[in-house]
Amino acid sequence: MRFFGLKTCDTCKKALKALDGQSFDAFDVRADGVNPTDLAAAHGQLGAALMNTRSTTWRGLDEAARDRDPLELLAEHPTLIKRPLIERDGVWTVGWTADVQKTVLEG
């Protein structure tokens, strides 16, 4: 399992606490980024749900920037990735809803 988030994100902190004791690799999207292959795979499964349009980064973008290719935009501004982004056995999830928790914690 791989966990992509921000150490300052409250939702990521909740998810990490729930995952305590499980084996996973954690990545900080701001410090580590997300490699293009993983970003493309996550976008392929999640589509527009991958983009955090409620973030301050999104609100700071002009209309032309928002209309760019989503993968380029996410690679350039990794804080636009909705968090946490979790990959488990090739299945990508985003956020920490009850459905995501069930998928991630129960496999």
Rank of each mutant, 00 (worst) to 15 (best):
V91R: 13
E63N: 08
K7E: 09
L39R: 07
Q22N: 13
E87I: 07
A40E: 13
V100Q: 10
A26P: 12
H77Q: 02
M51D: 01
V94T: 11
A98D: 14
A40K: 13
N52T: 11
D28C: 00
C12E: 02
A41I: 04
A75Q: 11
L73K: 03
L19D: 08
N52Q: 05
T8S: 02
T56Y: 06
T8C: 03
V91S: 09
F27G: 00
R88K: 15
V94W: 08
D10A: 09
L85A: 07
A98H: 15
K14F: 07
F3W: 04
I86S: 00
T103Q: 15
G60D: 03
T8I: 05
I81Q: 01
W96A: 02
V29Q: 04
L6R: 00
A65W: 12
L80I: 07
L71N: 04
P36F: 12
A75W: 11
L85S: 03
Q101T: 14
K102C: 13
A15I: 06
Q22W: 13
R2G: 05
V94F: 01
F4P: 06
V91C: 05
P84M: 08
G60M: 12
T103V: 09
G5D: 07
S55M: 00
P84K: 03
T97I: 07
F24L: 14
L73V: 11
E63R: 08
G107K: 04
D89C: 06
R66K: 12
T56V: 02
M51R: 01
V94K: 08
W92I: 07
Q45E: 09
R30K: 05
D67H: 12
H43Q: 02
A49F: 02
G90L: 09
G33Y: 00
N52H: 13
A98N: 14
V91F: 10
H43D: 04
E106D: 14
K17G: 15
P78I: 02
G60S: 04
A42W: 11
L61Y: 11
T97A: 12
Q45T: 02
L61H: 01
R54E: 05
P36R: 13
F4E: 03
W96Q: 06
L46W: 12
L85C: 04
P84G: 01
D25M: 13
G90I: 01
R2S: 10
D20Y: 15
A64H: 09
G107I: 03
Q22G: 09
A26I: 05
G47P: 10
L105T: 15
T79D: 03
K13F: 11
C9D: 06
V94D: 07
R59A: 05
A15W: 09
D38G: 01
H77I: 10
D28E: 14
K13N: 01
G90R: 01
D62A: 00
G60K: 10
L80G: 03
L19E: 09
T79H: 01
L85D: 03
E76S: 13
S23Q: 15
T53M: 08
E106F: 14
